[in-house]
Design a protein around this nucleic acid. Structure first.
Length: 924
RNA sequence: GCGGAUGUGGCGAAAUUGGUAGACGCGCUAGAUUUAGGAUCUAGUGCCGCAAGGCGUGUGGGUUCGAGUCCCUCCAUCCGCACCA
């Protein structure tokens, strides 16, 4: 038998592809293009594990397949290299994050190449390099200098808005804006520069505003919700408070409608679209303004059910609502203040966990706009300040939360929609006639909504309104390892840097922590923090999302130093035809990438509205951790089969390295030397083994369950690993990594090799003409593989190859005419293997330049096809039709008719309908 | 609670539009070969049954000549969101 020496074959071809720059795409070409993209990784110190390459292998297969199909394919790879781990590592060790990042990236490239993953070497990005982040900063400045016209649904330069204000004030402007008040042209022209700048800030797409953040004094930074545990910082356990701080924000809410409607035009999974839809959270209703007894201020509420206004018996404000101060009465002051303080310091998590409705009465009253009744104003933390207006009109008969609250505090409940039993629960259905509702009585709820909005508009106290759940995104971080914000403050006015001065390079600092006074790390760069003109620089950096929001536009033209990317080049390449990555970016990266693409289209720099035409989420490959029982009392490790069911809680569960465990039995000596714990004692079972138990969880270094793909490649080869990962199941499905079946795949490659090379390393391939049977199997295989790849069902392609090899082996067929097309169809899965044999076949070029074979139905047809037969629509029997005759429908009908005539005692059928491969329908 | 998805052998899984359920691989059983095997090859392997035969795609119904596939009910699991007014 020939020896399939995968080690030398794989090394040879990996070097070949690299040296010959095989995967460089033509920047522009008359060929059809195909842009296939992976979500680029963060280059962590831990390197790749077997879970990572699943999506990478899939895109590599597509790349090679599409090239064989005649496409000009772009398949780039890069690194999302700004981020927290490198910064934390720097704080600990003093190693510059850039240095650490560089080392890690080098390791990643080497790992990728060793599993046969090769990319276009000219199309790569590293987000932390100045040549790249120059353009991230540049786009930020573009956002800063544009506003969003809501009427035209498009972004325009801010200068245009300045002209409008100078001529007409802001009354006519319909914009996405946080500007609450209106002003005339005269008022605008009379303003100081600073006052004008403050107003423009309310219109910019990148703007400064106060936002509620989790501030940790001790760490000197803002923390994400995930970084807080029980109201304390995860690291250090320092107190965290919710604080209003001025932050850079991006006005993504301007694009909410387009982000929503755009989903209809792209090929993403339902769950992905549902997540984005829900995140945007569009809801239609009405806003209503209430007068408040004794004060000038009014309360504005948002409701989706204006029809139930007559059932409104009290008001509820969020504890943080600005009006609380003004409306509370003297005798309620103490109680209100206690409640507000308590609510403010509750962590987000506590608030979510606790659904019991608590609140206090403020002592103030609002006036019902229709009846003039006095409505007590309460505060309660079931009303959140971040949604709607932070205030609600409570309708206990129609909303379960209001109902619970009213029952608890004995507030009035008035039925307004008939059909429920409001003594038992709220009735929130829209099925029912209006009652107790004056002019609405007798209408359906749907009619009443329209009628009430009409009435509110007529009275000038309300209007139709659309509210979104989505908030503008905070775009500043008090960190070092990110893009510096290219803004300086001239006389306190935030001013964009001159584009010619970009990139604004990260300054060198001696420590990466915030300053002792709580200023961001960049404040330590004392000579940098004022620019040459003496203006103060912004000290914030951008979040990790910044670099990843546009990298796919950079790849096709990654070396361009004149523009962020040439318009012609991205017009040719965009949109991305296939994007593969995990679901964890559903509402983060994917949302902001869509937003930035739409913005860049608005300002004429991109031609597509949606960046990612087809999105596939690969499932995570989970780790199978191995755990040991350790007796809590004696600290003795006990073999898992000796632990009785139900007594597990007497033991601690300790992770051990999966590499020490074979078939559930752990190498005890290996464990001792690994942990350097010579004192560990083990209770073995009767067979003298120490058994562990396993558990499926995330693959992670800290759980000792990672498997390095390079180790696996060394053991069985990259081609085997690629085939096996694809063979495991559909790429969308999460599954535990299980190596049990890998031998089956490996021996398939060995058997395949033996079709080409014989026992004494002699070349077996012959030139004879293939038989019908051989052609049938070949064409079936090609068909199955092509269809499998096209719908990304790689797991059905591998069995097709296996069947081919088995059948050819049985027939002892070594003919070039069938083996060559087979090699091409296999080449995207096992590229090293196929390149080697392709070369041995005598081809002077790489298999990537071969064209994918075409399958022909005429070779595939079965010997006989069984058709069920219907007569006058009723199922009667089955007839058999020879496949040769079934080549075209006409013959098939004739034959079927003949058979049926015999069966029907010579009576001819009036009509015989044959759907190929289906059913015969006969009308007598 | 809301939204999205998924339920098929001992296991991973196949089954283009409704048409022979379980391809392919693992595991298991038997045999061959080998000094030996966690190597290789051959045959078998959904379940019950000696067999003929019967039963089988989470549950219960429905449409159809025919349902893993379409419709409704319920159950279970996974993911996402969560007092959204």
């Amino acid at each position: 038998m020939g020896t399939y020496d995968y080690r030398s074959i794989e090394k040879k071809w990996q070097r070949y592809w690299k040296e010959n720059r095989t995967f460089v795409a033509d920047k522009q070409s008359s060929k059809p293009k195909y842009y296939v993209l992976d979500m680029f990784p963060y280059p962590s110190g831990a390197g790749l594990h077997v879970g990572h390459p699943l999506g990478f292998i899939a895109t590599d297969i597509i790349t090679r397949y599409k090239r064989n199909k005649g496409f000009n394919v772009l398949h780039p790879m890069g690194f999302d290299s700004f981020g927290l781990p490198a910064e934390q590592y720097a704080i600990k060790t003093g190693v510059h994050p850039a240095e650490r990042t560089k080392t890690n990236i080098k390791h990643y490239w080497q790992q990728l190449e060793s599993i046969g993953l090769h990319y276009d070497p000219d199309a790569t990005v590293t987000t932390s390099e100045p040549a790249y982040y120059k353009w991230t900063q540049w786009i930020f400045l573009k956002l800063f200098s544009h506003w969003y016209n809501k009427q035209e649904e498009k972004a325009y330069p801010i200068e245009q808005l300045v002209d409008i204000f100078a001529k007409n004030g802001n009354a006519e402007v319909i914009a996405a804006s946080s500007q609450k008040t209106s002003f005339s042209a005269d008022a605008w022209n009379a303003m100081t520069e600073k006052e004008q700048a403050d107003i423009l800030m309310n219109y910019r797409l990148a703007y400064l505003d106060y936002a509620t953040v989790n501030w940790c004094q001790e760490l000197g930074t803002v923390l994400a919700n995930e970084e807080i545990k029980d109201g304390k910082s995860e690291r250090g356990g320092f107190p965290v408070e919710r604080r209003q701080m001025k932050q850079w924000m991006l006005r993504i809410t301007a694009y909410a409608d387009r982000l929503l409607t755009g989903l209809d035009t792209i090929d993403w999974s339902d769950s992905m679209k549902a997540m984005q839809t829900h995140w945007i959270g569009r809801s239609e209703g009405a806003s209503i303004v209430y007068q408040v007894e004794g004060v000038e201020d009014t309360i504005e509420v948002f409701t989706t059910r204006p029809d139930t206004l007559y059932g409104n018996t009290f008001m509820v404000l969020a504890p943080e609502h600005p009006l609380v101060e003004k409306i509370m009465s003297a005798d309620q002051k103490e109680e209100v203040e206690t409640y507000v303080t308590w609510a403010k310091n509750r962590s987000e998590k506590d608030r979510i966990a606790d659904t019991s409705k608590t609140g206090v009465f403020t002592g103030g009253y609002a006036i019902h706009p229709m009846t003039g009744n006095k409505l007590p104003i309460w505060i309660a933390d079931y009303v959140v300040i971040t949604y709607g207006t932070g205030a609600i009109m409570a309708v206990p008969s129609g909303d379960q939360r209001d109902w619970d609250f009213a029952k608890k505090y004995n507030l009035e409940i008035i039925e307004v929609v008939a059909g429920g039993n409001i003594d038992e629960a709220a009735y929130d259905s829209k099925d029912g006639k209006m009652v107790n509702s004056d002019f609405l009585n007798g209408m359906s709820a749907r009619e009443a909504i329209r009628a009430m909005i009409g009435k509110l508009v007529e009275m000038g106290i309300g209007k139709k309104e659309i509210t979104y759940r989505q908030r503008d995104v905070i775009w500043s971080r008090q960190r070092y390892w990110g893009e510096p914000t290219p803004i300086v403050y001239k006389n306190g006015i935030a001013t964009p840097m001159d584009e010619a001065d970009l990139p604004l390079v990260l300054p060198e600092i001696d420590e990466y922590k915030p300053s002792p006074t709580g200023e961001p790390p960049l404040s330590r760069a004392t000579s940098w923090r004022t620019n040459p003109d003496g203006d103060i620089r912004d000290l914030n950096t951008m979040p990790g999302l910044a670099g990843s929001s546009w990298y796919f536009l950079r790849y096709p033209d990654a070396e361009n130093d004149k523009e962020f990317a040439s318009k012609e080049v991205i017009d040719y390449w965009m949109p991305v035809d296939l994007y593969i990555g995990g679901t964890e970016h559903a509402v983060g990266h994917l949302m902001y990438s869509r937003f930035w693409t739409k913005f860049l289209k608005d300002i004429g720099l991109a031609s597509v509205d949606e960046p990612f035409q087809k999105l596939v989420n690969q499932g995570m490959i989970q780790g199978v951790s191995q755990l040991m029982y350790r007796n809590k009392e004696t600290n003795v490790f006990v073999s898992a089969d000796l632990v009785e069911k139900g007594t597990e809680d007497q033991y601690s569960e300790i992770h051990t390295d999966v590499n020490l465990v074979k078939a559930g039995v752990m190498d005890v000596e290996g464990y001792k030397s690994w942990t350097k714990d010579e004192w560990a004692t083990f209770q073995l079972n009767d067979a003298g083994e120490f058994r562990t138990f396993s558990q499926v969880e995330k693959m992670s270094k800290s759980l000792y369950n990672t498997i390095d793909p390079q180790v696996l490649c060394e053991e069985v080869g990259a081609d085997t690993m690629r085939l096996y990962e694809m063979f495991l199941g559909p790429i969308e499905v999460a599954k535990p990594w299980n190596i049990d079946g890998i031998n089956g795949v490996h021996s398939f490659l060995k058997r395949a090799y033996n079709l080409f090379v014989g026992d004494k390393e002699e070349w077996l391939v012959t030139d004879g003409a293939p038989t019908a049977d051989e052609l049938k199997i070949l064409h079936k295989t090609i068909k199955k593989v092509e269809e499998g790849i096209e719908r990304l069902a790689f797991n059905v392609c591998v069995p097709a190859f296996m069947v081919f090899v088995r059948e050819m082996g049985k027939m002892n067929c070594h003919k070039r005419a069938v083996l060559e097309p087979f090699l091409v169809s296999l080449s995207s899965f096992a590229p090293h293997f196929c390149e080697e044999l392709w070369e041995k076949m005598g081809h002077g070029q790489t298999i990537l330049l071969a064209s994918f074979p075409e399958w022909k139905e005429e070779f595939i047809a079965e010997a006989t096809i069984q058709y069920p037969v219907q007569i006058n629509g009723k199922m009667r029997t089955k007839i058999e039709v020879a496949a040769d005759a079934a080549k075209d429908a006409v013959e098939e009908v004739a034959l079927a008719n003949e058979t049926v005539q015999q069966w029907m005692d010579g009576k001819p059928a009036r009509k015989v309908i044959v759907v190929p491969g289906r059913i015969v329908n006969i009308v007598v």
